[in-house]
Design a protein around this nucleic acid. Structure first.
Lengths: 191, 191
DNA sequence: ACATAATCGGAACCTGAGTTCCGATTCCGG
DNA sequence: CCGGAATCGGAACTCAGGTTCCGATTATGT
């Protein structure tokens, strides 16, 4: 691949990260091109479609999540490890509108990216460890995490400017709801 | 107003409820017209704009919420009253995609509808009562309710068919997170 | 029943945003 | 340094979906 091509590809990715984080899926290809100081044609040469670009960037983010989940497994306190991962996930989503939209409204994209990045396994372990330690309620399953995450990411975005959001309040409440012992009985998971 | 006009208005509202509940804001005016067995022109005579229709229907829903909140105040058990309201709100949103989108992504519309319907007052009372009774954590404020609600409504919609959703699991977790005593300390609310 | 005016229906219009296309430009091997 | 191929840029195209418009239709007062 020619040198300028690779350079432009990077510029597109960088611009895409910023625009998608700010405006979510509504971000416009022209804006991305402009920010990358590149023509739209160039964007399309590297990513045949807007979806393709979005998915490529989503994959990046999921890789980051997986890494963080593995890292959190090293935390000697199982509950702290679990909470650490939840906090990281929430903050990532709070700063990336596109990611939270995918979590909330594109199950296919999400489950594929999760698959690809191997996110499921370390998250399951985090949960199992915390449950075994008696700090996480017994009736949560790994599938609940995206469920909770999605809410975490979406709720906060009142208006759209800056990270003046309440996601940390939200996370605090959810974390307390996840602690053992459970009080409210949950219906069995479906899906 | 002529008799047929009023009749058509009702048909449009009914069709709008159904289409918006199913497809959210993406519902198309043509679909609504078709379902109402009416031309698009007729829809536009009654509601000058898609937004106007959406807002009219949102107002309906908020009226229902307000009513339910007042009703829940009669519950002799303050916590049960609060939970009853939360459960009702969540189920309404789980069955109305447009409503949950408004809650999640249109603060202006939401706060206006909430204002209009007088929702804030009974909700504040519900919270105050449950806190006084010692069953609801002290650090929640009325503004947290939409925050939580939004998540409740959004997370569940994996795929888009039917109410095969997990919102009740979600609600159960959040309710436990709202119980006193709080463990995780929340940052102060902003906004 | 008739005149009049409101209402209806849906084709046509307009706008915004994703995508395509191709002449101009830039890179790289000989 | 040159030729040709890969890459670039952005004007033009396309299509979807909200909105407008107006001749046809239907309700209401006399």
């Amino acid at each position: 691949m020619r040198a300028d091509a690779r350079r432009n590809r990077e510029k597109v990715l960088k611009a895409g990260r910023k625009c998608l984080a700010d405006d979510g899926f509504d971000a416009q290809m022209e804006d991305i091109a402009r920010r990358a100081k590149v023509g739209v044609g160039t964007v399309y040469r590297h990513f045949p479609t807007k979806d393709a670009l979005v998915e490529a960037l989503a994959a990046e983010r999921f890789k980051g999540l997986t890494e963080k989940a593995r890292e959190a497994l090293d935390n000697p306190d199982p509950w702290a490890g679990f909470a650490e991962f939840m906090h990281y996930s929430a903050s990532v989503q709070a700063n990336d509108r596109a990611l939270s939209e995918i979590m909330g409204a594109r199950p296919e994209v999400m489950s594929e990216a999760a698959e690809e990045s191997g996110l499921f396994e370390p998250v399951s372990e985090l949960i199992a460890k915390a449950q075994k330690a008696g700090s996480l309620r017994r009736d949560v399953v790994p599938e609940d995490v995206p469920l909770l995450m999605c809410g975490l990411a979406r709720a906060p975005r009142r208006g759209s400017k800056g990270p003046e959001s309440n996601w940390e309040r939200y996370l605090g409440i959810v974390l307390d709801g996840l602690r053992a012992p459970a009080i409210t009985k949950l219906p069995p998971p479906r899906g």
